[in-house]
Design a protein around this nucleic acid. Structure first.
Lengths: 377, 377
DNA sequence: ATCAATACTTGACGAAGTTAATTAATGGTC
DNA sequence: GACCATTAATTAACTTCGTCAAGTATTGAT
């Protein structure tokens, strides 16, 4: 395993993967090492095909010296598989070292039975075997212990204490990483997306639940009792609707998919209204339903402002399947955020955009890449 | 400077200072080093008087081997001064290496003029010079850049961009550290108080403002734009009172000292009611005023629950001069917290207790100790 | 051609850790 | 009471991983 050959090698790979091609001198400055150390650590990586030198010599200043020959990752040197598990489907991808998706595959799940799911995962990896991936990341919603590969509890799959990592490892022969889906997506955005280079970062997902992944001081936040990023259960309105958590006025009780549909049904008096009907009505100009989305967006904005005020991330990305109604939400999310964000927190850049669903599987692959580059993180 | 002789030496000192006396083997496990490394790094520390060996050999298990001779810090080896600046007073302490306060001194400030304040600080350090402290920590409320010793803005002192660290250093000849007061107190509690040993920790201060210091993954949270821990400006009630920040229903607009007094005045119809009068009335059973405190405590509890849900610290300490009304607040803080804390977050231990005012100065000294033990943190 | 400037490489060295063997101090066993 | 298992601490040889200082490479400007 030449990658983990030295601490410096891991640091070099990580820097190049997350920040793009750079000269040895630039790497040395970034990593706080001497350029000699970079030269030495980089050589075996070049020899092994993980890195290559770009002849591409950009113009340096006027009285220039020897031009730099930047180092760059060879993305195709190694491939990684990633699978996102939902209650009724597997979404699988193969990514290269820079987390660029090379293939996507969907596979329906007939049941959430553990053996069936493990079997389907194994079948999917056989389909993807042509890429030669030796590592596989799995993303599951719920309470997951990454270090042991244990799924403590997963609501959609109705799993309790499933040693998913071990089961899939022995079924596939791959090195398996299991991570919570929101954390995996957060990792992907932090390393390879809009959060790249940020020391702190937050990703908010909007859907049936409202979740949040956090990176602070460059490290993911896990919560000492396993709870973190529960933006959905911040209380923003004591007069708000009851929440399944036992409190009332939670962000999720106002802006979750089902509460929105319920409020839209109440506003229209139509008991059969689906969430898609609600989208359509709001877009058609139904004021009552539009107000439901406005209130929901505002609640999400307040939740995001809470993140901004408490941890002050450098960037915040908002996404999730709920943003299918992107156009209905966006201005109200921004309004709620801007009203409640305190002082300089209001200047935190907010990216609100739907992500393709494969992005979740890419998140799983990103965790696998990370586990390869940073043996212990 | 023998303390920073090696990384291991700094780690050993830090572990012993924060977690108490331990055998070399225990230190090795805790720090992830070999016991040989501990032996080597500890010797110069013993020779220099920073550490001593406790003969005190606790009973190990049944079939015991050689008894351990734990290492312990010699607290009196080095002393540290700490001064908390308020708008009208300096509070100074001298602490030993384990942050035990040895002397306290108060000194009124006639003005917030920078030269006057620096002069008074210098005079105070001369009073405390007998202890031989070579380092001084300063705690100031407001926006402070610790690395440069710059006070960017301090509301109570009405300071803008004062290079306090340099000014005091040249006036006293000491090595000076400047830190925000809440962060300093958080550091003190994290290293030497109830947060000792916790990987993540939160300190909530209740007073004219509501603040929060955060430690996540063992490191303080600063916020990329300078904002963090602004628990006072979480929005908890859209129908709540207007806040000076421009929004409404903020925790601080409900539970800050002045809003409480205002609400008590409104409840009683007495325009001259002070906050102390309000305490007295509530304790005497005035239902209207008691309800004001109940609402305030509840709002604080909601804010704390937000911290718990988002970052999940291992412990939370609540203090501040507002807790003079400890008995009026406490049950309502707990009620708000328990209602809104999600899942396992409700099990985070909450310590609600007034801290003596000298504690803020001890915080300043703690930052100074920390800067001695961890050259770069 | 020469020089200043910048990038990279090389090899000697040193800091700070490791492992493995050794010494130290204890309780239990026959 | 000799012996042994057990745990703690030390020691010495070695490894790893970096730095430093000197030298090489490649450019633009004079």
């Amino acid at each position: 395993m030449p990658l983990a050959a030295s601490p410096a090698a891991a640091a070099i790979m990580t820097a190049l993967v997350t920040a793009g091609p750079q000269s040895r001198v630039a790497l040395a400055r970034r990593l706080g090492l001497s350029s000699a150390a970079i030269t030495k650590a980089a050589r075996p990586l070049i020899d092994d095909g993980y890195l290559r030198e770009l002849g591409a010599t950009e113009r340096t200043g006027p009285g220039a010296g020897r031009p730099a020959s930047p180092l760059a990752v060879r993305p195709e040197r190694e491939y990684f598989a990633g699978i996102k598990l939902t209650g009724d489907e597997l979404i699988g991808v193969v990514c290269d070292l820079t987390a660029t998706v090379r293939v996507v595959e969907h596979r329906p799940l007939r049941s959430a039975d553990v053996e069936h799911v493990v079997g389907e995962i194994a079948a999917m990896t056989r389909d993807l075997a042509g890429w030669g991936a030796r590592r596989l990341g799995l993303a599951v919603s719920g309470d997951v212990d990454r270090s042991s590969g244990l799924v403590r509890y997963s609501p959609f799959l109705r799993w309790h204490d499933i040693t998913l990592g071990k089961l899939v490892a022995s079924a596939t022969g791959l090195t398996v990483t299991v991570e919570n889906d929101v954390k995996a997506l957060t990792t992907a955005e932090h390393w390879f997306g809009e959060g790249a280079g940020a020391d702190s970062f937050a990703l908010v997902t909007v859907g049936s639940g409202i979740g949040c992944g956090l990176v602070v001081n460059g490290r993911p936040v896990s919560g000492s009792h396993g709870v973190a990023g529960e933006i959905g259960h911040l209380g923003v309105d004591p007069a708000g609707p009851d929440c399944h958590c036992g409190s009332r006025g939670c962000v999720e009780a106002i802006a979750g998919t089902e509460p929105i549909a319920a409020a839209a049904r109440a506003a229209t008096g139509r008991a059969d209204l689906s969430i898609d009907d609600a989208y359509a009505l709001a877009r058609a100009g139904n004021a009552g339903v539009a107000a439901v989305f406005a209130r929901a967006g505002e609640a999400i904005g307040l939740g995001i402002a809470a993140v901004a005020n408490l941890v002050g991330p450098a960037r915040i990305v908002v996404s999730g399947e709920g943003l299918a109604a992107y156009d209905l939400f966006e201005p109200h999310i921004r309004a709620g955020f801007e009203r409640q964000a305190f002082g300089a927190a209001a200047e935190i850049p907010l990216s609100i955009r739907p992500l393709p669903f494969e992005e979740w599987a890419r998140g799983a692959a990103a965790v696998s890449i990370q586990s390869r580059l940073v043996p212990l993180a």
